[in-house]
Amino acid sequence: MKTDSPRAWLLAVRPYSLGNSVILIFAASAMAFSDGAFHGMPALLCLLFALTMQCTANLVNDLCDCRKGADRPDRLGPDRAFSKGYITLPAMKAGIAAFTLAGCLAGCGALAWAVAHGTLRYGGWELVGTGLACVLFAYLYTAGPWPLAYHGMGDAAVVLFFGLIPVGFTYYLQTGTWTAQVTAIALACGLAIDTMLLVNNFRDREEDARCGKRTVVVALGAAFGRWGYFALGTGAAALCLTLLPDGRPWAALLPLPYLVLHLRTWRKMVRIDHGEALNVCLAETARNILVFGILLTAGILLG
């Protein structure tokens, strides 16, 4: 692969994972639409912010995991662009800066729209603080003196920054409110998306232990990884069912086929147990999350 080529950058941003950001904004915007308060411009700006921040986090992760020894030439997961030498250090730093700047511009645009349309309760400072927290998370997940991913905080961070914050604040930006239903949907999305991190950490548990990366799977063992993956997916489906008493039967029931896919992947993960063959479970998990997001969004729109 040619150094710093478009193919190298495509590998680095991990396109298979970017659907996670898309389903979050779609689900939140579907809630806003169903509540009669959808606005296309802030929804688009939130989507751009989420995608650029995820790309930033992926690039920082690519760089820092290599430098910390977590991405060695014999790694089990998909190739990483920086560790393979496909992207040079100056180009990687420039790419991280560019995606960060693009995310900040999108966030500022969303803030400007909300202030102009008077949808915010606290003058916009709540969005400023949240946006800064998202930028910090993109870096501190694997960078800095106390990287979250290396101290067992990765899963909690994913539920927060790939669940509660993007779904809750995308809805809040358009409507000026935050409801219990939105919280349930946000948590359901966060749990479903965390299955991707957990299957990664389950596959890499031996490598992570050798390099001092104490994920929850390293700290609590492979059995926790197996049952944790099971619990995350079933928990996501169960949270959708809480929408049933609130008069949203489609949103509650339509995501249930996801659970079938999730359990099939879980059984395959348990059977394979270790090694590069677990990458098929990673691919299926990415597919399952996308199916969950599509079904949930459709269910919200149907009522």
Rank of each mutant, 00 (worst) to 15 (best):
A70S: 11
A81R: 03
G163K: 03
F137P: 07
A188N: 09
F99L: 02
V182A: 09
N20F: 10
P166K: 12
L241Y: 02
G228R: 14
V182I: 15
A94Q: 06
W227P: 02
P6Y: 02
G247H: 11
V128E: 02
P90C: 06
I23Q: 13
A184K: 06
F38A: 07
C66N: 05
S34W: 11
W125H: 12
V217W: 05
C108F: 13
R271T: 13
L239D: 04
C240T: 13
G69F: 00
A97K: 05
T177F: 06
V199W: 01
R214C: 09
R226H: 08
I96M: 11
T88P: 05
R203A: 08
G235E: 02
D273G: 05
A43V: 04
V159H: 02
A43H: 04
M1W: 11
P15V: 15
T285K: 07
M92L: 14
V291W: 11
G124Q: 12
L140N: 08
G85A: 06
D155A: 10
W266L: 04
G275M: 12
L243P: 05
C240K: 05
G163C: 00
G275I: 11
G152Y: 10
G212C: 07
F162L: 13
G293Y: 13
L302C: 10
A114L: 10
M196V: 13
A238S: 13
L290D: 04
F99H: 02
G107D: 01
L132F: 15
L241S: 06
G228D: 07
A102N: 01
Y258C: 02
P166F: 11
A50G: 00
G212S: 09
A188F: 03
V199R: 04
P145F: 13
C134Q: 10
T242L: 15
L160P: 10
M31G: 08
C46A: 15
G40E: 05
V199G: 02
H151A: 13
L101Q: 00
L44A: 15
I272L: 15
V216P: 00
C104D: 09
V291E: 03
A94P: 00
T170N: 10
G212Y: 08
A57M: 09
W250E: 14
L263S: 03
D155Y: 11
L191A: 06
G131D: 00
E126T: 00
S34N: 11
I300C: 09
A32R: 01
A57K: 00
L241Q: 03
A219R: 12
L290K: 09
P249R: 11
V128S: 12
A222M: 06
L164I: 14
V22K: 00
V291N: 05
L45T: 11
P42A: 05
W178C: 09
